[in-house]
Nucleic acid binder design. Structure first.
Length: 564
RNA sequence: UGGGGGAUCGUCUAAUGGUAGGACAGCGGACUCUGACUCCGUCAAUCAAGGUUCGAAUCCUUGUCCCUCAGCCA
């Protein structure tokens, strides 16, 4: 890094934090929080927020709380709470004893609401949802006051207490802040603070039948926890005046600063909770952890590492403008990490049988192979070679074009770590004409992969001995959508019309090196020349292995092919 | 058409009145028992028009375009 480069992780928020710390604001303390609502699974957009909040806490010696924003019992569930905690941990972050729930503050929140009533800053409204909407006005016209807006403090207190006691039905009344029905910001036109929901809450059970709204809950929860910097996404910018208003009108312990940043958008996928739920519920994918999904559990199952995801989050930066990060950057981050750590192994995905005619039947050579050229400590292993092997179908062409270096009739190539072989005959299906088998000869003097006479060969192929091969299913994943921005409006179409039907291709009868026979969940590797793969944590069984392709290798040949 | 935000290489992101920089992608090359990795080179941007200034991405004016808000969701 030269002196002109900006240090990684530096952005407009860290600039603010550094200034605040320097000015000894909040007594030089930094406290952030990650506040998910437990109504869905975390996705890569949340990863950005998690890395931000936990990340700044770590680098500036502060703390970051995990807080569940669980104020809507009709949508939330413990299933999500557990999954969210697992995902945050997997990403590599720890909240120690700072696990909180907004629902833990319900009693305090109720007291704050009473304070607002006592000071004339909140009132119980008998209008129903429809009527409230009608009174709200529009973007250009002011709203009108509710007829219930000027009830006495005593009456409001009594009514609010009876709301809590369960005397009224859902929707019968709400508690509203008394701000200004003519406010140019619609959020400030007497926002609802509490609504009646006679629904069991996943943590408080039936203790409550009134539940506080986000705008009332979030700022006060932040304040109760002594948060200094409350980081959220851009769509909450409109809510900031209300965040500040609430804290200014009750005896709040402190007044955190809300700062908004742009949420993550990723090309060729969708990141809205609503759409993700739809894809899962309508069966376009197989559950929340489908490896095609940008959910954290989906990425994990696909074979993405926490390190790769964290590096990605750092690389994308942070700003206030809307943006769409190219999925290529995610793929780059994954390759970068896996290249260092993934053991190399040979796996033939689309097998083509090859018989080495001058190799004695029944003979087996044990050849030495390097486990990871990027990591000398990974050591070596032994790979069996025999008369019948499999190579990749794509590694042979009967009529190779100019720049195709691989095997063809009469050509010599190297079998990795093994021998030079020359193709002597091509056997085709008598009816379809499809190439079904190759006949080759090998040069015994090239054992290990080098010719004593120094002759070179233009290609090195991966291979697996037929007699020793382990069979497996390999699932090839590609981008979920065929369009970079599936949300882009197109006449008569929705994002679902752009789902990529080839996002999953399952190959059966793939031939893997025998050392993979016992690979279990958590195992990942590189199939040389093919990509990075991992054992599927759900469907793989001993004797019936299932591998997922995490990401392909960069492929110069594929690019060349595409051009012509 | 009210309020609140935003606009820098194809994509993300720096530069806070003083050399428009980095990463990804692309292109070209070197190396190579992975057409991988690595290395080198290269292409490429300040929304527009005025103004202030020795000097403007940055300050001022006017305009353009984009996002966001009318849940008893978060």
């Amino acid at each position: 890094m030269t002196e002109h480069e900006t240090p990684p992780g530096s952005n407009f928020i860290t600039t603010i934090i550094e200034a605040d710390l320097k000015a000894n604001k909040n007594d030089g303390r930094l406290a952030t929080r990650f506040p998910p609502e437990p109504n869905g699974y975390l996705h890569i957009g949340h990863a950005k927020s998690i890395c931000l909040n936990f990340g700044v806490a770590k680098t500036y010696n502060g703390t970051c709380n995990l807080r569940f924003d669980d104020t809507n019992p009709t949508k939330e569930d413990v299933e999500y709470v557990d999954a969210i905690m697992a995902d945050v941990r997997w990403l590599g972050f720890d909240w120690d004893d700072r696990l909180h729930y907004a629902s833990d503050y319900f009693e305090q929140l109720y007291d704050f609401a009473v304070q607002l009533i006592r000071t004339g800053n909140a009132y119980v409204d008998d209008l129903n949802a429809d009527e409230i909407r009608q009174h709200r006005g529009t973007l250009t016209e002011p709203g009108t006051n509710s007829p219930w807006r000027s009830r006495s403090v005593e009456e409001n207190l009594d009514l609010f207490q009876r709301m809590r006691a369960g005397e009224f039905e859902d929707g019968a009344r709400v508690l509203r802040a008394r701000i200004d029905m003519g406010h140019p910001n619609l959020i400030m036109r007497d926002p609802t603070l509490y609504r009646i929901r006679k629904t069991s809450h996943h943590r408080t059970g039936d203790t409550w039948c009134i539940y506080p709204m986000y705008d009332f809950t979030h700022c006060l929860s932040d304040s109760i926890e002594g948060i200094t910097h409350s980081l959220c996404t851009l769509e909450f910018e409109n809510n900031r005046p209300l965040y500040d208003w609430v804290l200014d009108h009750v005896a709040a312990p402190c007044h955190p600063q809300q700062i908004e940043f742009a949420r993550l958008n990723l090309s060729y996928t969708v990141l809205s909770k609503r759409k993700l739920i739809q894809l899962v519920d309508e069966g376009h994918v197989n559950g929340w952890d489908d490896p095609r999904l940008p959910t954290i559990c989906g990425l994990r199952r696909r074979g993405c590492t926490p390190e790769a995801l964290r590096n990605f989050c750092e690389r994308i930066g942070l700003a206030k403008r809307d943006s769409v990060v190219g999925v290529a950057l995610l793929e780059y981050s994954i390759r970068e990490d896996l290249n260092k750590r993934a053991p190399r192994v040979m796996g033939v995905l689309r097998p083509l049988k090859v018989v080495i005619e001058n190799y004695p039947a029944g003979q087996v050579d044990e050849l030495e192979a390097v486990n990871n050229p990027e990591d000398p400590d990974a050591g070596v292993r032994t790979v069996p070679f025999s008369r019948e092997i499999y190579i990749e179908r794509d590694d042979f062409m009967e009529n190779p074009p100019k720049k195709f270096f691989r095997l063809g009739p009469g050509r010599e190539v190297r079998l990795r770590y093994a021998f030079f072989v020359t193709c002597t005959d091509v056997i085709k299906h008598e009816k379809t004409g499809e190439v079904v088998e190759l006949r080759c000869t090998y040069d015994p003097s090239t054992r290990g992969g080098n010719a004593p006479d120094g002759r070179k060969v233009k290609a090195t192929l991966h291979w697996v001995s037929a007699a020793h091969a382990v069979d497996a299913e390999v699932r090839l994943y590609d981008r979920l959508f065929s369009k970079a921005n599936p949300d882009e409006k197109e006449a008569g179409k929705t994002y679902k019309d752009f789902l990529n039907p080839d996002a999953l291709e399952a190959l059966r009868g793939c031939k893997l090196e025998p050392c993979l026979a016992d690979a279990g969940p958590g195992f990942f590797c590189q199939f040389e020349r093919m990509g990075y793969f991992c054992v599927d944590a759900k469907d793989s069984k001993p004797g019936a292995l299932v591998f997922n392709r995490t990401v392909t290798l960069r492929d110069a040949w594929a690019k060349l092919k595409k051009k012509s």
